[in-house]
């Protein structure tokens, strides 16, 4: 099997699930004839037809609303948001209608809301966002943010089969940059389980999505300096895998959190609280974080480079923490 990109892995997951289960349908803007802004849904219409691949008007609230209605009918809709930034347009549907449905009146909403997210591609303030924390703060939702092609495919399949509403963030910087060979058989990756990408003794980096790769690169360099870094890839942000985080912190006694999301209110704060509540006695240093700056995502390359966290930021913060 030839290695496939993350984008192709996502496409495969949708394709295979639609093939497996006729209750899986897709809905979104320009997903059918055009195949999606990033071509994630290319070929779906041709194979599954107009009723299962629904091109909509530019109406994010209608997309999410209609997907809710479909899921009440027992279907499993996959709603695409052309860029995840536009999720703000349907915020009410997601946070009030979707997230509270099962809790309020026992009506499960088995739908997936997916879309390209993240910066590093000079998309500017409206095509680069990482809005995951709005939804991590919304009980009733599940939030997935994978970093590899394997995980993207396996987690998306789990999301489609899940009886709860799942937000699936696809980092567009990774779409065509990460590749790997995938198993030929049907597989899933469980929601809510983090994974240790690199074992280490000296400090733990907890991260996800594109920053997972930057963190691994930094860990390789730090290894040359004798700093043995463990990298934990969250994969799912809600529910948060506290066990894996705490297990790693108890082992290395130092915690650095790295994310591309902005600093204030980012998940680093939550993870720091989890570590304080569950492993305070094990900590041998302050909990530090490397994040984007607290600003909108700027457009021009030097501005965006300044905004985003990078390997050097991780290196310097990790050295500081290791030396503490």
């Amino acid at each position: 099997m030839a290695p496939v990109t993350m984008l192709e892995a996502i496409r495969q997951a949708i394709f295979e699930e639609m093939e497996r289960d006729p209750s899986v349908v897709t809905i979104g803007e320009d997903i059918g004839v055009y195949g999606g802004a990033f071509k994630v849904t290319a070929g779906l219409l041709e194979r599954f037809g107009w009723e299962r691949v629904i091109d909509t008007p530019i109406s994010e609230t209608a997309i999410i609303g209609a997907a809710v209605g479909m899921s009440y009918q027992g279907l499993r809709p996959i709603a695409e948001l052309q860029f995840i930034d536009f999720i703000a347009c349907c915020f009410n549907q997601i946070t009030n209608f979707v997230a509270k449905s099962h809790y309020r009146w026992g009506a499960p909403v088995p739908m997936v809301m997916r879309g390209p997210s993240g910066g590093g591609v000079h998309g500017g303030p409206f095509h680069s966002a990482n809005p995951e924390m709005y939804f991590v703060h919304t009980p009733g939702l599940k939030v997935i943010y994978p970093s590899t092609a394997y995980d993207a495919k396996g987690l998306l399949k789990s999301a489609i089969r899940d009886n709860n509403p799942v937000l699936f963030f696809e980092h567009k910087f990774l779409y065509r940059r990460v590749k790997e060979e995938l198993p030929s058989d049907d597989y899933t990756v469980p929601i809510g389980k983090a994974i240790v990408r690199r074992e280490g003794r000296d400090l733990t980096i907890v991260t996800y999505a594109a920053m997972m790769h930057t963190s691994l690169e930094a860990a390789d360099e730090l290894a040359k300096e004798g700093i043995d870094v463990e990298v934990v890839d969250l994969r799912t942000l809600l529910p948060l895998d506290k066990e894996t985080i705490l297990h790693s912190v108890k082992k290395t006694n130092k915690l650095l959190i790295v994310h591309e999301d902005t600093r204030t209110g980012g998940i680093a704060g939550e993870i720091a609280a989890v570590a304080c509540e569950g492993a305070f006695e094990d900590l041998d240093g302050p909990i530090l974080r490397v994040t984007a700056k607290d600003s909108p995502v700027p457009f021009s390359p030097p501005l965006e480079e300044r905004f985003l966290p990078n390997k050097n930021d991780i290196l310097s913060t990790a050295r500081e923490l290791a030396a503490y």
Partner: peptide, 25 residues
């Protein structure tokens, strides 16, 4: 019967989805 929420108008797209799914099924 689909439960409303307090935010007005939201049932219009939701019931559209119910109808589309009904046709599909």
């Amino acid at each position: 019967v689909v439960s409303p929420i307090s935010m007005l108008g939201d049932l219009v797209p939701v019931m559209t989805g119910v109808a589309i799914a009904g046709r599909y099924l």
